[in-house]
Each structure stands twice: as structure tokens, then as C-alpha cells.
């Protein structure tokens, strides 16, 4: 079996652990320490940010324009609206600046 296959299997097990783990572990405690809860709350934004930020280092004008528009649209629209707006700007801008 390929490496990809095992990444998928391990990723699936890791994901299932998060889905059943809260019930098995956290529900045994009466309360979660506020600092732990604050840390848990911060996890998704922290992880996802690291996937965007380094891309800025080699982003050209087209990529910057797309990210700015995505962020702007996000203040009003939903996820799909901002994604489509960002993608449209990117495709359009790349026709001119490559």
C-alpha cells in the first residue's frame, strides 16, 4: 500500500479520536480549566493561519489582490462567497500579471 494510503488511514484514526475522545476524556472532568479552554478555542485559527501566512512571502500582485478581496468579502458574506470572490480576482489578475 502507498504512503498516501497510510496517511489517509492514520488521519482518519486521528480524526475519529478527536470525535470520540471528548466524550471519553473531557466528560470525566467536571470543569475544564479556563486557560485550557482558551487554548482549545484558539487551535483552529492558529493552525489555519500558518497555512496562509508563509504564502505571503512569494505572493505576487495577483495573489495579494485575491487575499485582500477575500478578507474584505468575509466581513459580509459567507465562506463560499468569499472563496468565489477571491478566486475570481486571482484568475482575472493572473490574466494580466501572470
Amino acid at each position: 500500500m502507498s504512503t498516501t494510503f497510510w496517511i489517509i488511514i492514520a488521519g482518519a484514526i486521528a480524526t475519529y479520536l478527536t470525535r470520540i475522545g471528548g466524550h471519553l476524556v473531557i466528560s470525566r472532568f467536571d470543569n475544564i480549566h479556563p486557560r485550557v479552554e482558551a487554548g482549545l478555542n484558539a487551535v483552529p485559527a492558529a493552525v489555519l493561519t500558518t497555512l496562509v501566512a508563509p504564502e505571503l512571502l512569494h505572493a505576487g500582485p495577483a495573489e495579494w489582490a485575491a487575499l485582500v478581496v477575500t478578507a474584505a468579502v468575509s466581513l459580509r458574506g459567507g465562506l463560499m462567497a468569499m472563496f468565489l470572490a477571491g478566486a475570481a480576482v486571482l484568475i482575472l489578475a493572473r490574466q494580466f500579471v501572470g
Binding site: 471528548g22 476524556v25 482549545l40
Partner: peptide, 8 residues
């Protein structure tokens, strides 16, 4: 990891 909270 956020699922841990949902699960609980």
C-alpha cells in the same frame, strides 16, 4: 481537535 469539545 475542536471535535473534542463537540464530543464532550
Amino acid at each position: 481537535f475542536r471535535h473534542v469539545l463537540y464530543s464532550a
